[in-house]
Amino acid sequence: MSKKQLVETTINGEPTEFLCETRQSLLESLRDVLGLTGSKEGCLTGDCGACTVLVDGRPVCSCLMLGVEARGKKITTVEGLAEGTQLHPLQQKFLEDASLQCGICTPGFLMSAKALLDRNPNPTEAEIRYALAGNLCRCTGYDKIVRAVMNAAKVMQGR
């Protein structure tokens, strides 16, 4: 029963194979098997969003998905957000707008914000707050995070 399973998937655009136990979550698979430690563990109950990755473009708490469920999916993690050395506008704005303090929640916020902007390039403040409600930050009071997403949206729209 404990035999490991081979999972063929795509991670950050790269076809990837990995071996995992069925009981290993996608988060464990990313961190402990593949060494992609950018996705963070905060609660293991889907309440903090620090482990958010995109699965076929949708935001998912990777702590609440099994590694074996990644078969045939396209996974995007924070490590895949920039294109080479070209930061995603969200990353750039998070830096410029001082949107992170300790930074542990940052990867999750970036991925949730990317999922939002990919579907809704011009969100209102209320839409941003709704889309980020599954990500907890305890340092910033969210103010500068929300502003960075607004500003990134502006950049991406060429405004």
Binding site: G49, R58, P59, V60, C61, L64, G134, N135
Partner: peptide
């Protein structure tokens, strides 16, 4: 139900 992350699953 939950967050958008949860609703995706």
């Amino acid at each position: 139900i939950g967050s958008l992350q949860i609703q995706s699953r």
